[in-house]
Amino acid sequence: MISVTRVNHTADIGLQITASNLEELFKAAAVELFRLICTADDALMEKEEHTLSVEGNDLEELLVNWLSELNFLFQTEQILVAEIAALVINGTLLHAKFSADRFNPQRHTIHTDIKAVTYHELYVRPTQIGWEAQVIFDV
């Protein structure tokens, strides 16, 4: 059970996510980040395997650092996450294995430049049936 809602913010873009567990929550946030950045016009042509480890002081900082690092990969190497094969959270450490495509204007349409993942009104918290988070991007 994953739900992602975009939050109306005057200048920026926010997401509210709910999921049955923490790993699904972090995966859903990453998938939506790349939906905000661009859409693929065709089935992805090439896939590269990547691994990424990030840490934070707490779960909220971990979410910001995870999304920031993915955005950094896009900003500097045009890496677009296609599918997250594995994501493990151990305390405030995250390890992920994912396949990715490189941005190609023939196959991708760019939508939004995410300048940063902010701490404004940020939360990651358990609910009765799973987890929920809110994060706002500076665009």
Partner: peptide, 9 residues
Amino acid sequence: IHWGYGFPI
């Protein structure tokens, strides 16, 4: 002024 993040814009 409008809603920013942290400080207002």
